[in-house]
Amino acid sequence: MSKNTFTLSSPDIAEGHFMAKQHEFDGFGCNGQNISPELHWRNAPAETKSFALTVFDPDAPTGSGFWHWIVTDIPVAATCLAKGAGTGSLPPGCRSFTNDYGMKTFGGACPPEGHGMHRYQFTIWALPEEALPAPEGASAAVVGFMLNAMALAKATLTATYARD
């Protein structure tokens, strides 16, 4: 890996590894602590003016995956989000969008019992504008479309989770 590669890391979750119970949702039949993991990113492109963070489960049995967290307009000076930041303690200026639980905060893993292993894709997006030009109330799909259309770079850390 090049020393200039945009990366996302965490002391709480690891690529391809099972997440701790503390990152499980509290609701929908799940009883975790719903704590978002600590996340760190580095080597963003020089033109970056803000960041966005998404957490997505492509394995959810919905036909369209499941959005767990959507945060945009993270200031360019930020290089991390603290453990538990998903409860609303984000850097000033951040915007949160409604996830598929119907909340604007972090919603932890909660795959259906017996559905097998699900992947949770934590993605940091480097953006060329200070604010994502998405209207308030935009759906996760619209935000995702805009991020894919304008991102300078992105880095993903994929953790897993299952409920027997």
Rank of each mutant, 00 (worst) to 15 (best):
A126Y: 05
Q121R: 13
H115M: 06
F145T: 14
R119C: 07
L127I: 02
I124L: 11
R119G: 11
A141L: 11
G144E: 12
G137R: 09
S139H: 05
G144C: 11
A141C: 03
G144M: 07
P133C: 05
Y120K: 03
W125P: 10
F145C: 13
E130Y: 06
L127T: 03
Q121S: 11
H118E: 03
E130V: 09
H118Q: 09
H118C: 01
A138G: 08
L132V: 13
G144W: 08
V142H: 11
H118I: 00
E129G: 00
G116C: 09
E129M: 10
A138W: 04
E130S: 13
R119M: 02
W125R: 10
V143P: 14
A138N: 09
H115N: 11
A138K: 08
V143M: 12
P135S: 10
Y120A: 03
V142N: 12
A141P: 09
A138T: 08
F145R: 14
V143E: 12
W125V: 02
P135W: 00
G137K: 04
P135L: 07
P128Y: 07
P128A: 07
G137C: 05
P133K: 13
L132T: 06
L127Q: 07
G137P: 10
P135F: 01
V142C: 04
P135A: 13
H115C: 12
S139M: 04
P133T: 02
P133Y: 00
A131W: 03
